[in-house]
């Protein structure tokens, strides 16, 4: 067994885990944070993207022990209470989801993009989303939402 302490959405979580526990299993099964989804389970679809020390990672392809001592942000940690994060609000406003399964990963990936590039172009967004798949094929509205979300974040909304 391994002893890990990970700061998840601002709260320190210490658990005894088997070293083979994936970060996504730790989040979903040990902490009950089921907003992070497992789509492909093979590092391709991006449904499980979370931020580890501010950077997007596929939590299905990272061991929880590798995240020991880091800060992890999941989709549950981005809203301010009942007030949606501007990026979440933009996804709702622009109808950027149909089934919604890929949405948590899309939002988390978008947040790292905006962190690196405050005013991404459509091409920047499409290139950045290479590792996030939407099986409803709704990319057009996702791209529009991310552009709007980035603009809202820049205005501090």
């Amino acid at each position: 067994m391994a002893h890990v302490t990970i700061r998840v959405n601002g709260k320190e979580e210490t658990r005894e885990i088997k070293p083979r526990t994936l970060l996504v299993e730790f989040l979903r099964e040990r902490l009950g944070l089921t907003g992070t989804h497992v789509g492909c389970d093979t590092t391709q679809c991006g449904c499980c993207v979370v931020l580890v020390d501010g950077r997007s990672v596929n939590s299905c392809t990272m061991l929880a022990v590798q995240a020991n001592g880091t800060s992890v942000t999941t989709i549950e940690g981005v809203a301010d209470g009942d007030k949606l994060h501007p990026m979440q609000a933009a996804f709702r406003e622009h109808h950027a989801l149909q089934c919604g399964f890929c949405t948590p990963g899309m939002v988390m990936s978008a947040l790292e993009l905006v962190q690196r590039n405050k005013n991404p172009t459509e091409a920047d967004i499409r290139y950045w989303l290479l590792g996030n798949m939407c099986r409803c094929t709704g990319y057009q509205n996702i791209v529009e939402a991310i552009q709007a979300g980035a603009a809202a974040m820049a205005q501090g909304q």
Binding site: N58, S109, W128, G131
Partner: peptide, 9 residues
């Protein structure tokens, strides 16, 4: 190479 989340690891 790959995609942003893979390049981060």
């Amino acid at each position: 190479m790959a995609d942003p989340s893979v390049r981060n690891r």
